[in-house]
């Protein structure tokens, strides 16, 4: 599916730009995109190295396992395929907590650690996502931020009478999205297993 979306975006864009007589923007935009990607990855080196260091300590101290044990009732429902008390579950919970608290810088490295742990459990093709990874990403991409601080800051800057007024509506909308993400994940997992994929 990602193949078609990717190809579709590129083909459609080139056709539109060509028909519009501004085909030259494509080359620049493509290089700009590539440049941004490399910059983003390089910027990640520092925070990933830092959090991997901390996580190694947390693991050695047994904290990740303890956390995984603490949230077992929840993770047993969401990640039936992951062995209980596996470090992956600790990392998943830390990623979601960082998301909820709006700590984007910590959330990404925790998420990547969770993916590495989940990949260790991948018994199939190492290039294909596992059920647990799909569930984790469904949770992660729809996850609740209790305080959307960036947008509150922007509202404050533009003299909003009540900058934090949108916290309630944001939580409502996120809760709806998250419920659907979990539901669709379950249904799709079932369908894919029926088809043996």
């Amino acid at each position: 599916m990602v193949n078609y979306i990717w190809l579709g975006m590129i083909v459609f864009s080139i056709l539109v730009a060509g028909a519009d007589g501004r085909i030259e923007v494509i080359t620049r935009a493509a290089l700009e995109g590539a440049n941004n990607a490399v910059k983003t990855s390089l910027n990640l080196i520092a925070i990933i190295a830092f959090w991997l260091g901390i996580m190694r300590l947390a693991e050695a101290a047994g904290l990740v396992r303890a956390l995984a044990r603490l949230v077992r009732p929840l993770t047993r429902l969401l990640f039936p395929g992951v062995p209980k008390e596996h470090p992956a579950l600790g990392a998943v919970i830390m990623n979601l907590s960082a998301n909820i608290l709006g700590l984007g810088n910590a959330a990404t490295p925790m998420g990547l650690i969770a993916m590495q742990e989940l990949q260790k459990l991948n018994r199939g093709d190492p290039k294909t996502a596992t059920d647990a990874m799909c569930t984790f990403l469904a949770l992660n991409t729809s996850c609740l931020t209790l305080i959307p601080s960036t947008i509150i800051g922007i509202r404050l800057m533009h003299n909003s009478a009540d900058p934090a007024a949108i916290v309630g509506t944001t939580i409502f909308a996120t809760a709806c999205g998250m419920s659907v993400a979990i539901l669709v994940d379950r249904v799709m997992r079932f369908i894919y297993h029926l088809r043996g994929r």
Binding site: M9, S13, A17, A34, A37
Partner: peptide, 11 residues
């Protein structure tokens, strides 16, 4: 990001 960038810039 190349696909996204092209998608935005092309109109």
């Amino acid at each position: 990001l190349v696909a996204i960038s092209v998608f935005r810039a092309s109109g």
